[in-house]
């Protein structure tokens, strides 16, 4: 981004973004259950959701290191 070292997307930003996203994903099951009556088993939902989130985190990290090499 800009030349200011304070402004890079920090690991702190990624951590906060990840946790907020995780909470949203977690609440989605409640939305499915309460609003749409779709009963997704927690034993299936939570591991899958966790895998997706970790996948996103890894992908984000990979993209970022590519970006910083180019920049």
């Amino acid at each position: 981004m800009t030349g200011n070292p304070l402004r890079i997307e920090t690991s702190g930003g990624v951590l906060v973004g990840f946790v907020v996203l995780a909470v949203v994903v977690f609440e989605l099951r409640t939305v499915l259950g309460m609003l749409f009556g779709i009963d997704v088993s927690g034993v299936v939902y939570f591991p899958v959701a966790l895998a997706v989130l970790v996948g996103l985190l890894v992908a984000e990290n990979a993209l970022r290191s590519v970006g910083s090499k180019e920049g």
Binding site: P5, L6, I8, T10, S11, G12, V14, N61, S65
Partner: peptide
């Protein structure tokens, strides 16, 4: 990875 990057920046400034 990220940790190293952050502390390096801090080292430069604060």
């Amino acid at each position: 990875m990220n940790e190293g990057m952050v502390s390096a920046d801090d080292g430069a400034t604060h």
